[in-house]
Simulated scan of single mutants.
Amino acid sequence: MSDLHEPTTDLRGRLARAPKVVLHDHLDGGLRASTLLELADEIGHELPESTPEALAAWVQRQADSGSLAAFLEPFSHTTAVLQTPHALERVARESVLDLAADGVVVMESRFAPELSTAGGLSIEEVLDAVLAGLHAGAAEAADAGRPIRVGAIVCAMRQADRSLEAARAALSRRDAGVVGFDIAGLEIGFPATDHADAFALLRENLLPFTVHAGEAVGPESVAQALAVGASRLGHGVRVLEDVTVGGDDASARPHLGRVASYVRDRQVPLEVCPRSNTQTGTSPSIAGHQVTALRDLGFTITLSSDDRLWTGTTLTDEMVLLAEEAGWGWDDFRQVTLDALDAAFIGQDERMALLEHVVLPGWAD
């Protein structure tokens, strides 16, 4: 942990300016509240609030309620408006601009195209609209002096049966901006191994993938994700349940079980989203979040903000929360940024160029 102690206002300013890497950002969870209102008005979809401020506050109340049903309810509204190329392209473009404004220089935007096919679009048409928006946002950000490297991660829903279709679509657009694959949705009762055919196809064609695991379910879910070949773990923090502390002997070293040992020893990156984890009950609080113990045990940590409309945070905000409530410092955030860049689904030449010319200079003391 860093020895740097400085007023939070000073640290926030430094973190806001520092180049950051986001690996876990859901497109349908990061809409601007104002955009959600406008898109809903265009199609006559009724929302629970009529101003951006009130709507954002409502979404965050739902997320903080402790009820899974309440947490999921706002997604019915974001999914309802993301059924046309216009809406998908707009939301994707704005997401890039919002992250670039927070100093993000590498972003991977994930979304489940199957959720935007209710209006008649194919998965491929959804992909094309989102990719067009991501590219437009990156060009606009670069013109504004905030260059950002953008990639798309195609998600399939764990509780559905379209993962093989989604994997094929992802492979068909890998030269157009798709950089990886994921499964999301209900973790309980829907193991990653249910989608073995999709993961086999991805492995055969060398497209990397991450898997949501270790969020709603513990080490057994992480083991399933590893078994299908996940390169990273979405959240993953409940792998800590496979670590046993020394009981009454405070000097005893923690014992890592087989799953925890595999993840740590092979440095499988964890895509940790602190604020979101407290909303879903995965973590008790920021102060008691598993990420600090995992960091101290030598796991590879990356930080993201998951569903930004739900969390009401940016990546800078997530870092400040960890600084204020869990004692993290500048050196910690520098390390997780370097680890995130190393874990990003980009080529090594581009990674090294970003490291040398953008990331390291931006995180210099």
Score class of each variant (00 low, 15 high):
V130D: 00
R61T: 10
D194E: 13
A160R: 15
R258F: 00
V96N: 04
S285K: 06
V228F: 08
D28Y: 12
Q62K: 12
E204K: 12
G66Q: 08
V59T: 08
L134V: 07
L134E: 11
R295M: 08
L341R: 10
V228E: 09
D143Q: 14
M352V: 01
V91D: 08
E324Q: 15
V222P: 11
R168F: 01
L202N: 03
L115T: 09
A353V: 03
F71Y: 15
A192R: 03
L127V: 14
A118W: 00
L201S: 02
A192V: 05
A184G: 05
L360K: 10
F111E: 03
E220M: 04
V259E: 03
E187V: 09
L309E: 08
L39F: 03
E124T: 11
A57T: 12
L303F: 10
A100K: 13
S172D: 14
G13D: 09
P19F: 04
H212I: 10
H212L: 09
L68K: 04
L68D: 02
E6H: 00
S261T: 15
L256R: 05
L131R: 07
S231V: 12
A141Q: 05
L82N: 05
F181V: 03
A118H: 08
A56F: 06
C155M: 10
S2C: 02
P208K: 00
A56E: 13
Q279V: 02
R232E: 05
G44P: 09
F333Y: 11
G120A: 06
L134N: 04
E215L: 07
A80E: 10
A343K: 04
Q335S: 13
S50C: 01
A87D: 09
R203A: 14
L233W: 02
P147A: 05
R264D: 04
A213R: 10
V154G: 00
A18T: 07
L226F: 01
A364I: 01
R12A: 13
E89A: 15
R61A: 13
G362Q: 05
V291M: 14
R93I: 03
G281C: 04
D194S: 12
F190N: 15
S76N: 11
F71Q: 12
R173P: 02
V150P: 02
G214N: 07
L11M: 15
E356R: 14
E356H: 13
R275F: 02
V22D: 04
R295K: 05
W328Y: 12
P74F: 06
G247P: 05
E325Q: 15
D197S: 14
A227K: 08
S2Q: 02
L127G: 15
A250C: 02
D25T: 07
V179L: 06
Q62E: 13
A144P: 03
D161V: 09
E73G: 06
V106S: 03
